[in-house]
Write a protein that binds this DNA or RNA. Structure first.
Lengths: 265, 265
DNA sequence: TGCTGCGGTCTGTGATCACATTTAAGCTGT
DNA sequence: ACAGCTTAAATGTGATCACAGACCGCAGCA
């Protein structure tokens, strides 16, 4: 019983099973469904996805290489914890790289780019104004909007770099958004988005960068205010993960979501 | 016969065999010893390195993920060809990212950083002024100098991003430097380096960026002038891997035993 | 009661096997 | 003698096996 027979992977495009697992874990990380500190077992992930260990190992190796996962000295694999120092560094780099991206986007955007941006902005706006906003959708719309702008810069390499940054910072960013969805209304994100899209449309790179900087800084200061970031990585914190991917004993609700999304058999 | 017994990998630090292979291939790529278009066979690489296929597969998966290698639709693995369009895109991104890095470096460099920079600058200078300059050493010194500056920015994430960029553009950059070492003297690289280090030392981020931009642009225009870049990737070029950048027929002298054994078939 | 060995389970890692697909040589048929 | 088909070698991919080390719990001793 090969897993190849389970999933219809005999598509024309070359999708390796390892690539599929990589994408799967990537989405889970970006959407904040895997909390920082959460430990993962290759075998459990493989079982949850209905494959063997081999593709999982390849996917995890890739994620470890791009520092979206880390392997502890004890060989345990987990979602990296985020120290305040690291968070600030990532934010600094994001400001520089994504700021440059939106400047370029303002200069080179096409009409199709603008249409995509408006579409995702509307989606985010609708979710933020909803009486019962769903963090999941808001996170996705926010991401789609940002990357619609970044893609408009016409520099695929840069988009890839930014994806790597989001993958590193996504767990903390989106986990906190899930916990406190009221930030959607009070954070001013919708206003930043409006300014960003308008500036890109007007071709004003400077204003676009300003709007993006406000957006990023706003989210960053909120995260810092939650006090969830580590001041410094204590050695004992390596021993207390938030939870394992495969629930032992009783299953927590959000872990069920993760497992449900992982299981594709 | 386990390969673990071959190499003394029982160090205190956690070095997996896959990581070792990754580093090995990474160096070969950065130093331009693997020409663009060169095909690789997992089994041959494994045999050449004295390991099994598994670590090689992991390393190649990582390199493919960061687009330093690519797998063709026929599942063949090779060093990606460089189109002119892609080269220009990478250069644009490099100008933005590395330019920001040196600006930050000028602001935050310590005395230790400056010492390291001067050290590698001298090494590069000595090699460039040598009557018989060795491309290998010059390439290494150049890289060390640049990264000494980038590290001075105090943003490890940014350094990682730049490493990824160099890994993608390294094959063409350094392969051409090997073919025509006279560029060491005529390219003005030594002058750019002097200006860069001086500006960083003086804390003048603007001048530092200017020097770096000249350095990158100088090298880029030289590469473009050689005419070795592809105008557009024709579909049949997938079948003629080595021919694009490396002359086929006779094997080049620098294609040493290790490299020759690494190739497919 | 509190600490210390000690065994079993589970972890990641590397090697090996199995298979579908592709590539190249060899061979047959006119 | 050459085109077309067949077959054999080789490739990447996934599954499975083997193994060293870490973690956890249980028993035994002071």
């Amino acid at each position: 019983m090969t897993a190849m027979a389970i999933a219809g992977t005999n598509r024309r495009e070359r999708v390796t099973l390892g690539g599929r697992v990589h994408t799967e874990l990537r989405e889970l990380l970006m959407s904040g469904e895997l909390a920082p500190g959460q430990k993962m077992s290759l075998r459990n992930v493989a079982e949850a996805l209905g494959t063997s260990m081999t593709p999982v190992r390849e996917a995890v190796a890739r994620l470890v290489a791009e520092q979206s996962l880390e392997v502890l000295p004890n060989r345990a694999v987990r979602v990296p914890l985020m120290t305040r120092e690291r968070f600030r560094e990532l934010t600094t780099v994001r400001l520089a790289v994504e700021g440059y991206a939106v400047e370029e986007a303002a200069r080179r955007r096409t009409e199709a780019d603008l249409a995509a941006m408006r579409c995702f902005e509307d989606a985010f706006l609708a979710e933020a104004r909803s009486p019962r906003p769903q963090a999941e959708r808001a996170v996705r719309s926010n991401k789609e909007l940002h990357f619609a702008v970044y893609r408009a810069a016409g520099l695929p390499t840069l988009v890839g770099i930014i994806e790597g940054l989001w993958l590193k910072i996504g767990p903390v960013l989106n986990l906190d958004l899930k916990v406190s969805p009221e930030r959607l209304k009070t954070g001013g994100a919708t206003e930043h988005h409006r300014r960003l899209v308008a500036a890109v449309e007007a071709g004003d790179g400077c204003a676009a960068r300003s709007a993006l900087v406000d957006d990023i800084k706003g989210a960053a200061s909120f995260i810092e205010s939650t006090g969830r970031l580590l001041d410094e990585a204590g050695p004992d914190l390596n021993r207390h993960p938030v939870g394992a991917l495969a629930p032992e004993g009783e299953t927590q609700p959000e872990r069920d979501i993760a497992t449900a999304h992982l299981g594709s058999r």
